[in-house]
Simulated scan of single mutants.
Amino acid sequence: MICAGRVVIVTGAGRGLGRAHALEFARQGAKVVVNDLGVGRDGGGPGDEGPAHEVVREIRALGGEAVADGHDVATGEGAAALVATATETFGGLDVLVNNAGFLRDRMLVNLGEDEWDAVVRVHLKGHFLPLKHAGAYWRARAKAGEPVDARIINTSSGAGLLGSVGQGNYSAAKAGIVGLTLVAAAELGRYGVSVNAIAPAARTRMTEEVFAETMAAPEPGAFDAMAPENVSPLVVWLGSSQSRDVTGRVFEVEGGKVCVMEGFRHGPAVDKGARWEPAELGPVVTGLLAKAQDPEPVYGA
Rank of each mutant, 00 (worst) to 15 (best):
P233N: 12
F223L: 09
V210W: 13
N230G: 05
G221P: 11
E209T: 10
T207N: 01
P220K: 14
A225H: 09
E219L: 14
E213I: 01
G221S: 12
A216P: 14
G221E: 12
E208Q: 14
P228R: 03
M206C: 04
T207S: 09
T207G: 02
A225C: 15
M206D: 01
G221M: 15
M206P: 00
R205E: 09
P233H: 13
T214L: 12
V231N: 01
D224L: 02
F211N: 01
S232Y: 01
A212L: 04
A216E: 15
A222Y: 02
A222L: 03
V231T: 02
R205C: 00
M206A: 04
E229G: 11
P233W: 12
M206V: 01
A216L: 08
E229P: 03
P228S: 05
F211D: 00
M215Q: 13
E208W: 02
E229V: 10
F223P: 07
E219M: 11
A225G: 10
S232C: 06
M226T: 13
G221A: 13
P220M: 15
S232P: 07
V210L: 14
R205Y: 07
A212K: 10
N230L: 10
P220Q: 13
R205D: 07
G221F: 15
P220H: 14
D224P: 08
E209C: 04
S232L: 03
M226Q: 15
M206H: 00
T207L: 03
D224C: 03
P218C: 09
P218Y: 07
F211H: 07
E209M: 11
P233K: 08
P233F: 07
A217P: 05
P228A: 04
V210S: 09
R205F: 04
P218R: 10
E219R: 14
T214A: 14
T207A: 00
E219N: 11
R205G: 03
V231S: 01
F211E: 00
A212P: 02
E213A: 15
V231I: 15
A216M: 11
N230V: 06
L234R: 06
G221H: 11
V210T: 13
A216R: 05
A222P: 05
M226R: 12
S232V: 00
A225M: 14
E208G: 04
F223I: 05
